[in-house]
Amino acid sequence: MTATTYAKKAFLALGLPLILLAAWWIASAGSTNPFWPSLQTILQTFPETWTPERLAADLVPSLARLGIGFSLAVVGGIVGGTAIGLSPTLRALSEPVLEFFRAVPPPVLVPIIALFAGYTGWLGKIVTIALGCLWPILLNTVEGVRGLEPTLTDTAKSYRLSWWRRLLFVVLPGASPRIFTGARQALSIGVILMVISELFGANRGLGASIVQFQRSFAIPQMWTGIILLGLIGVLLAAIFKVVETRMLAWYMGQRQIERGE
């Protein structure tokens, strides 16, 4: 009984990915088109290309910059978003300005930041990532704080909870589902900016090396880079989901019950 359920689950989860991989393998086998090397070639090239030294030199700095930029955006977005969400005056004052800044596609920040911080070092790249990630977190925090259940706010008030206790135990947990929504959007923008920021100026980094492979027509290596980047995207999303499931367990449980599942 359980064995069949497991088998069924495994089939549903792995069936299509395996079919797709097999299709790719067969379709690309013996390919002579230089742009579409066979999957076999790509997989063979992978370990020789991404040696531990290369990972340390290219991948680690990229991820470190993403981590720093994203963390700055999380802190800034939550602090700013809470302040704006709690103060109607501040909100009215900043609304049109925020409306503009969030609409600016983050990649165009690169040329502007390049003016200020240069683009050879880490600073410009980190600022780009942080600024791009900031708006989704900030705006979602504002909405989360504004959307707090009024009865909860009343309860906190009637029990005379102090300002910081209200912030820590009522406002922030109440806004946390929206904060996570914003952080999830920010993370995917952050990965995009991590790559793009490395395409400007002579640099090392994951994005930079993929483009170098492409420019030097090292096509199988380029493909390994694309795959690696894809894996990183998937891995980051998975890590995010684990953190979210832990921190929002109450929210997911509550929603499940509300939907009668």
Binding site: L12, A13, L14, L16, P17, L20, F35, S188, V191, I192, V195, I196, L199, G207, I210, V211, F213, Q214, M222, G225, I226, L229, G230, G233, V234, L236, A237
Partner: peptide, 17 residues
């Protein structure tokens, strides 16, 4: 599972291609 896997792949990964 395939959608969950393909979705987070950053589209900029396709730039070189």
């Amino acid at each position: 599972s395939t959608i969950e896997f393909l979705r987070p792949i950053p589209s900029v990964a396709l730039i070189p291609l």
